[in-house]
Each structure stands twice: as C-alpha cells, then as structure tokens.
Nucleic acid binder design. Structure first.
Lengths: 100, 100
DNA sequence: CGAATACTTGGCGTGTTCGCCAAGTATTTT
DNA sequence: AAAATACTTGGCGAACACGCCAAGTATTCG
C-alpha cells in the first residue's frame, strides 16, 4: 500500500467499511428484505428474532455505511435500501460459493 | 429470520463470510491488485507494507472464502483472483460512497 | 398531562480480529 | 549437507464487534 497504490489508503478504508457492513448474516438478511421494499424496525425485529436494540444498531451501522436510509413517520422508522445495486453482489457471492 | 426467510440462516452466514473477507482495506487492496494478474506473497507484502506473516494470513482468509487461489512455484506462492466478478463490487461501492 | 408504542443509546461481558514476533516447513542454491 | 529464500503457523496482547438489558427520547393516544 506504500508503493504505487491503485487507490489511496483512505479509499480502501472507506470501501472496506461498506463491505464490512455487509459482513454479517443479519445485516445481509435485512438488506435482502429491504430490497423488496421499506420496512420498519419492529417488522425487521420480528423477522430477525433478536432484541430490537440489536436490530436498531445493525440498521445504524448500515446507515452509516451509506447503504440504507431511515425515515421517521409517526412513531415508526421506515428503512429503505439506498443503493439497490448491492443486490447484484449476491449473484457474484453465490458464484464464489459454488466455485469452491 | 425465524419467519419466512428468503434464504436459510446458513446461506446468509456463508454469504456473510465472503463479504467479511472483503471487509478489510488490506484485503480489498490485494483483491484489486490481483485483478490485474497473479502476484506472489513477497510482492504483495512489499506493496502492503506489513509483515509477511500478516499478509499471508490475509491471503489464507481470502482463500478460505473462495476468492483467491494460491499455487506454489518453486519457493514462491502465486495468488490469483478466482472470481473476477468481485471487481464489479467496487463500482457499486463507489456509488454508495458518492451518494452520501 | 400520563400512558403506551416505537425506537435509540449506554453499558457491559464475551468472543473475534488484527498486528507483530518467533519458530516451523519447503524448496532451491552453494 | 548447510545456508538462504519464501512462505506458513502459533502465540499473544490490544482493539473491535456483537448480543442483551436497562434507561432515555420522541410521538401518539386517551
């Protein structure tokens, strides 16, 4: 990374942060689910089967990575996928998995 | 994840493992570099600027995730990218980053 | 205003990741 | 066979991630 970096160190760090955000089964599930439409935290919590605080933290992490956005409507917060291209990752990942 | 999972829990775990492997700046750099052609560990070590043992462990992790393959030739080990489609992730990631 | 609902945030224990150093293996060279 | 090169593996401390519970905030409803 010292000599002739293709990108800067900081750029790789930023990219890594996005990939890291997707590196958890629960967050991957939520992204998959959000690709079908917006969901509120309570719905996701029920689907995931964890504490709501845990789900909320996962969503915060995804939001900080720039992958989702949340909008408060009344007492609920609805999350949606900001960058649907992420869904295309899955095809490639499955190719990786099947090639083993 | 309990009710009506789009995929099984295990499938999300397997996918997460692949994404996790890409969730580190050094590994992301190496994948990027390997997309240009095979490289031996010493070359990558010099580029990354870390201990060779560290780089070797990163490569092992990428290999276990199914992303790269290593081939020993003489005293060197050359790594190559097994699934070039991973490179396409970067476009989307940058879209995510620029959309913030 | 008080209670209820839907979330977020703080804190904490546990487990995982990451980096280096040191030691081990394998291949080539002398 | 000994030395050198190119790795890999083990071990260890520091930092980070993850889960739950408890407490806090915000909005709505009676």
């Amino acid at each position: 990374m010292l000599q002739h970096p293709l990108l800067t160190k900081r750029e790789y760090e930023m990219r890594a942060r996005v990939m890291k955000a997707l590196g958890h089964p629960t967050r991957l599930f939520m992204v998959d689910e959000l690709s079908r439409g917006e969901r509120c935290v309570a719905d996701l919590t029920e689907m995931v089967g964890a504490d709501m605080s845990t789900v909320s933290k996962h969503l915060t992490l995804l939001k900080e990575a720039g992958l989702v956005a949340g909008e408060k409507r009344g007492v609920q917060v609805f999350y949606r996928l900001k960058t649907p291209c992420v869904v295309k990752f899955f095809e490639c990942i499955d190719a990786v998995l099947h090639a083993r």
